[in-house]
Write a protein that binds this DNA or RNA. Structure first.
Lengths: 216, 216
DNA sequence: GGTCGATGTGAACACTGTGAACATATCGTG
DNA sequence: CACGATATGTTCACAGTGTTCACATCGACC
């Protein structure tokens, strides 16, 4: 293996602990990433973790951030396959939006353990910011959604009025479905069923955003 | 207080433990309902809990089911206010559907601790049932949604085609928003903001169900 | 080469869930 | 009414957890 320049005793133990955490979370979910488990996995003493993380919670948060990166990768991948054969700017923007939702669901179904981690939000001092979102700290997956929605507006697939606050219905529906399919009543259903229902959810919410002027 | 017929030593300790669990969860979330905490709250020894619950998990599940009942109550309440001034069968059915979603969100915002509990699904032997839902075990809140959707179909507010699988987009969007508003990026926002966004989410998803034939 | 700060270790502490042996109050039955 | 069976609650113990603190060890820099 590619021996990294090992400094100090272990050589970047912090990264090793996060990796071990990901490995454990992949099969056991968030509960299986404990201080003693992670350090045991890395072949190191329990107390050593406290040189790199303030707290048990801080460790979990670090692993969760790593899991969010994997989630973002899955979304980008799905965006690629969705937009592959989209003709025209409008269709491409809509396909991209669809890809964000379906990629999110893909990841949740493929890696339920890591997905559970990725959901943990680290509540920065639980600062109730007056604005709806502090864009400095917005996680990568959410950023992908915002960009896709902006592209929809730019291409005319979404009107300016429809664009405002559109991220919340989108994120809610997709996140909610992923949670339901992972831990909720749909847990354990066949992958084809879940895939089909996931598409239905994504298409419904996109239709809802665009069809605000509907029947009485 | 209405002294219940006290049998045996304590007099229905099981119920007392569940009540204590609800009380603790209300302020501290799911993590604060532990065997020792609950028994301490009830003024009883830790091991006594094992006469009524197999497991720590079994205790939490029992409390979660109680929390689900409270959730159902909140939904019923909101259904009442939504349908109060609805004219016509169709409008009433749609108002009822809206009430289910908004009641769910109401409860999540008013009682985030209990809401966290209510989400825990108890995965009965993790039996992957072939059918989409085992109707014997369907929790009350979900049942309220199914009935509201059926009423929409009966009144013509939803076509038969639109009705099929409509429960998943609805549940996903509402559940997802509640989760986001409670633990996610919207946590800590002002109640008015959350209320407005919640209405937006609910209205969007209902529009999406009814507007399947939308623009290209 | 010696000193110092950064990093890992070992042994402790308080806490948790859980089981076994024991104590006691209630009920069914003679 | 007495008495054994049984359901309920208690005490004690054990394994495992997060966490801390004194100590050991290594790399870097003067």
């Amino acid at each position: 293996m590619p021996q990294v320049t090992r400094t100090y005793h272990h050589g970047d133990l912090r990264a090793a602990l996060i990796d071990a955490g990901l490995q454990l979370a992949r099969t056991g979910g968030v509960d299986s990433v404990g201080v003693r488990d992670v350090t045991r996995e890395a072949g190191v003493s329990p107390a050593s973790a406290y040189r790199h993380f303030d707290d048990h919670r801080a460790l979990v948060v670090a692993v969760a951030l790593a899991a969010q990166d994997h989630l973002a990768e899955a979304i980008v991948t799905r965006i690629g396959t969705e937009t592959a054969d989209a003709k025209g700017e409008r269709a491409a923007a809509l396909a991209r939006l669809r890809g964000v939702g379906l990629g999110y669901i893909d990841f949740a179904l493929a890696e339920p353990g890591l997905f559970e981690l990725a959901l943990l939000t680290f509540d920065p001092a639980s600062g109730a910011s007056p604005t709806v979102l502090v864009d400095a700290e917005v996680p990568a997956p959410f950023l992908l959604l915002l960009q896709a929605l902006d592209a929809c507006e730019a291409s005319g697939a979404l009107s300016a009025a429809e664009r405002v606050n559109a991220e919340w219905p989108c994120w809610s529906a997709v996140h909610g479905f992923a949670d339901i399919a992972t831990r909720g009543p749909l847990k354990g259903q066949a992958p084809e069923v879940l895939e089909a229902l996931g598409e239905h959810v994504v298409d419904s919410i996109i239709a809802g955003l665009r069809g605000s002027a509907s029947r009485p």
